[in-house]
């Protein structure tokens, strides 16, 4: 698991046109080659914007205010858009929650994957077709030759997500950003797709930035996990350590509120995640924190390495 750094996000701050406050504030983490890095948090915590920024993609109006996103030796944010696009095509892949929105309904799924192969790897004709079949079977689509001629609406949700994965793999990427890739799927199908991500990592040595609101899903796939709250990472640790000995009060509260098999009592964390623009001056979790002291309200804590590979943003830890 101890690969070299593939992607480094440094002090990334994202803002939005017309709003005087940041949406994501000073996020830093590194992703190693061949690892699955889980980014988990509740809605509005900034995890999806952070994930997109790793591909130098920004929704309309959103822009980086400072920070760097370095892939190997290249700072993606300093590249002009044309070069970014080429770079993405060759090194990066993106998978969303809802493949139906990402696939073009009027073309066959085979055609859409062949198009990507043509654009980014210069393949065409029979070569492209064969490579598409290979990618489909790698993504676990049953009868891959027959699938070439299917339109997106003819496939089930699970099969569409497999097509999306095949398409993301078409450029032979080193890094996949998967944003809630199984949230819209049934549990038994979700289990199969999660298995597929683990296989792809092993087989291809892919790095995956896996974004989810679902702690159980993150626990299933991730090697390391970062928990986000109100636009910043509050805790980051190897998977087993995060789930067995969480240190940040928010991580602990989140785990205690999450129903698992055999849960007898869910502990309730009162209140809700503050939206951007309403973040408190001190620790952003302080208003809801059962363990806060007066200093927490005044001083914004830094993300500190408490143990090897375990970083926590809390004054009390």
């Amino acid at each position: 698991m101890e690969g070299g750094t593939l992607l480094q996000v440094q002090d990334l701050v994202l803002g939005c046109r017309g709003r005087p406050y940041p949406l994501v504030g000073r996020v830093s983490f590194r992703l190693r080659a061949g690892e699955i890095f889980g980014l988990v948090g509740e809605s509005g915590c900034g995890k999806s914007l952070t994930g997109l920024a790793c591909l130098a993609l920004f929704p309309p109006g959103v822009k980086p205010l400072s920070g760097r996103v370095v892939f190997r030796d290249t700072d993606l944010l300093s590249l002009p858009e044309e070069k970014r696009r080429k770079f993405r095509g060759r090194h990066l892949g993106l998978i969303f929650q809802e493949p139906l929105n990402a696939l073009n309904p009027v073309f066959t799924v085979g055609h859409q994957v062949e198009e990507v192969l043509h654009l980014h790897r210069g393949l065409s004709g029979e070569t492209a077709r064969q490579e598409t079949v290979r990618l489909f079977s790698e993504a676990g689509l049953p009868d891959p030759e027959l699938r070439l001629r299917n339109y997106p609406h003819e496939l089930s949700g699970g099969m569409r997500q497999r097509v999306m994965i095949a398409m993301a793999l078409a450029g032979d990427p080193d890094l996949l950003v998967a944003d809630e890739p199984t949230t819209a799927l049934d549990v038994t199908v979700q289990a199969q797709i999660l298995e597929l991500f683990l296989e792809l990592r092993t087989r291809r040595g892919l790095s995956i930035l896996f974004i989810s609101h679902d702690l159980a899903v993150i626990r299933e796939v991730a090697d390391r996990v970062a928990v986000m709250y109100a636009g910043e990472i509050v805790e980051e640790a190897p998977r087993d350590e995060l789930f067995s000995s969480p240190l940040h009060p928010y991580t602990r509260a989140l785990l205690a509120a999450f129903p698992r098999l055999g849960t007898r009592k869910l502990e309730v964390l009162p209140g809700q995640v503050p939206p951007p623009g309403t973040w408190p001056r001190g620790c952003r979790f302080a208003p809801r924190c059962p363990e806060k002291i007066s200093l927490c309200v005044e001083k914004h804590p830094e993300l500190k390495e408490i143990r090897p590979h375990h970083r926590v943003r809390c004054l009390r830890v």
Binding site: H213, L215, L254, A257, F258, E267, V268, L269
Partner: peptide
């Protein structure tokens, strides 16, 4: 709903 709200 989000996890913490779901528990509530």
């Amino acid at each position: 709903l989000d996890v913490s709200v779901q528990a509530q």
